[in-house]
Amino acid sequence: MSTMTSAWKQHRSRTRTTPRTWPLRDRLALTAALAGPFLAALALVPFRTGLSHTNAALVLVVVIVAVATLGSRTAGVLAALSAAAWFDFFLTRPYETFDITASADIETAALLLVVGVIVSQLAARARRLEVITVTDAAYLSRIHRTAELAHSSGSANTVVDHVRRELTDLLGLRACRFEYGTLLGQPPRLHNDGGVTAGRRSWDVDTAGWPEGDIELRAYGNGHYLGRFMLTPGPGPVPPLQARLVAVTLADQAGSALDTAGPVGTG
């Protein structure tokens, strides 16, 4: 008994005196989350008078994605906050202050933060799947355009229609419609991880192509199901996983707009 008590005391002593440490990769990512956006914004200073704020924001979003790929969701969110702050400090008038006088600059800074958080979560999701993350400028531009529209438009219908068009172009669809609040039948489904199921079984879309019939992509707002995009595949090749992950993100943005503005009719 005394031997067990002594061993327990030694274990407790080691537990109390051993500090919790972050993995090296996470520590590097957190450092990069603070320093990366600062250095990127500083590098853009000589070009700030001729560089549009949208392009500057996209550069910073790429940095956020790189940080999220290296580290975790926490690092990605921290990088988004850092990017928004240094965008304000270095790239908006009055320069070298945290004051913004123009409403357009305020909107751009807010959108940078929102898009940065969204894309960092997408990058973290892709990292968990051990795939290439979304860094293509065209993909980032789609997400940015949708976030900007959701921010400026008072109509959920407008956002949903925009996402329908984006999905059609992004995925090479023949057609795309939106169904509000219906879950009829069991069509093939495009999931949050970019994978596809047909019925209850997984479908190897990269090898076998799209399954027959329309494919549903559900839209959620604040964790609640609000509707679905019904995708009619076109004759071309199946888009890569990157594009399918972007499609899921666009559907999430439509779901957020629906959750804020209320129901819309079918498209």
Rank of each mutant, 00 (worst) to 15 (best):
P46C: 13
P46H: 14
P46T: 13
F47R: 12
F47C: 10
R48F: 02
T49I: 02
T49V: 06
T49F: 09
T49E: 13
L51M: 15
L51A: 13
L51F: 10
L51H: 08
S52Q: 11
S52E: 12
S52M: 09
T54F: 12
T54D: 11
N55W: 04
N55M: 04
L58Y: 00
L58S: 03
L58D: 01
V59K: 03
L60S: 02
L60H: 01
V61M: 06
V62P: 00
V62D: 02
V62R: 05
V62M: 03
V63W: 02
V63Q: 02
V63P: 04
I64A: 02
I64M: 05
I64Y: 00
A66K: 06
A66W: 03
A66L: 12
V67C: 02
V67E: 01
A68H: 07
A68S: 14
T69W: 08
T69Y: 06
T69M: 08
L70Q: 07
L70R: 04
L70W: 07
S72G: 07
R73V: 15
R73M: 13
T74M: 10
T74W: 03
T74Q: 12
A75L: 02
G76V: 02
G76M: 05
L78H: 00
L78N: 00
A79Q: 06
A79S: 14
A80G: 15
L81S: 15
L81A: 15
S82I: 01
A84M: 13
A85Q: 07
W86F: 14
W86Q: 07
F87D: 09
F87A: 10
D88C: 13
D88G: 11
F90V: 07
L91G: 12
T92P: 10
T92E: 11
T92K: 12
R93V: 11
R93P: 04
P94W: 03
P94Y: 04
P94C: 08
Y95A: 13
Y95I: 07
E96I: 04
E96G: 05
T97F: 07
T97K: 08
T97E: 10
F98P: 02
F98W: 10
D99K: 03
I100P: 00
T101E: 15
A102Y: 03
A102S: 12
S103F: 12
S103E: 15
A104M: 04
A104E: 14
D105G: 09
I106Y: 09
I106N: 10
E107W: 03
E107C: 02
